[in-house]
Simulated scan of single mutants.
Amino acid sequence: MSSPSPRSRPFHQVDVFSREPYRGNPLAVVVDAEGLSAEQMQQFANWTNLSETTFLLPPTDPRADYRVRIFTGSEEFPFAGHPTLGSAHTWLESGGVPKSAGFVVQECGAGLVRVKHDAGRLAFAAPPLTRFGTVEDTLRRQLAAGLRLPEAGILDASWLVNGPEWIGVLLESAEQVLAVQPDFAAMGALKVGIVGAHKPGADADFEVRTFLPGDAITEDPVTGSFNAGVAQWLMSSNRAPAEYVAAQGTVLGRTGRLHIKAEDADIWVGGHSTTCILGSVLL
């Protein structure tokens, strides 16, 4: 039996987490993905050669406004940060009207995620960590080798899993974060993010980098899921204030800025989104 003929579907490419277009993290969004199989979605996501591609679908949960499936070039994620903000931005730009005043509710593999407007930006409520805790010594040694650092240079390390299986590594300073030249072979298949504090007076409070060995993109420009986990980790250990700004993508020539805020029981991760490409795709 032959596959159905491709049809034209609305397509957006969105720059997320930067006030300046083309200086954040790009996201491909297929607005009407009904009828596509997981295999077709994965093939298209691999073809775009971006860190993530999302596909918008009608929700299956009556509380949600839309459903999203999130694919990297090689796998599907239950949740990811910049795809959440970019998808919400695109859904709203395409005429979506939220069911609830003040919030867009996204349905994804990790459940329901709330997105709200905050100071001219969209922000998502960080989902709970499904794995959180200190990494074992053997893994810590692998992290040190992968980052080309002495073990003593790692102040702390923790699992920060909220979809992607991130490991967070705390370094002494933002300068140390920027100086890291990773050994991806030593890192193996680990998804690793590093964070260090800037000196007072800088335009950001923390510098962040994230590494994805084995992917087509080995260093992600700006990573919402990792920053959501880092915020929960650093705030719970009194290493970060209840509101701060993280910079990411500096070594890649990007100007990513993530606005983090603890509010009641939630931690919100926000940033600017800009549509850079608007058209259609045959799928």
Rank of each mutant, 00 (worst) to 15 (best):
V281C: 00
E136N: 05
V230D: 08
C108N: 11
G95D: 04
V192C: 12
A179P: 13
I277S: 02
Y244N: 05
C108S: 11
A242Y: 06
A125C: 14
Q181H: 11
A64Y: 01
S2D: 13
S37T: 15
E172P: 07
L129P: 01
A247S: 15
I267R: 05
S280T: 05
F211T: 09
K261Q: 12
H198C: 15
R19W: 03
S158N: 14
V177C: 14
V16Q: 01
L50Q: 01
W159Q: 05
P98M: 06
L57P: 00
G95R: 09
A179L: 14
E263D: 09
R23E: 02
A179E: 13
F77T: 03
A125G: 09
P200F: 09
K261N: 10
R63M: 08
A174W: 14
V14K: 00
G271L: 07
T250R: 14
E76N: 04
E207K: 06
V97P: 00
P98T: 08
K116D: 06
P98V: 11
P26E: 00
A240G: 12
S37A: 11
W166L: 10
E172M: 13
A64I: 05
E52G: 02
D205N: 06
A179K: 14
T274L: 02
E76S: 00
D65C: 03
R239V: 14
V31N: 03
C276H: 07
R67N: 00
G111V: 11
L170C: 08
A189P: 12
A179I: 15
A185I: 14
P200D: 10
A101V: 13
G95L: 08
Q40E: 04
P200Y: 07
R254G: 06
L171Y: 09
I260N: 03
G224V: 11
Q42A: 10
E263S: 07
I194L: 11
E39W: 03
L190M: 14
S74K: 06
N238L: 15
R141D: 15
Q106W: 05
L129D: 00
S236L: 05
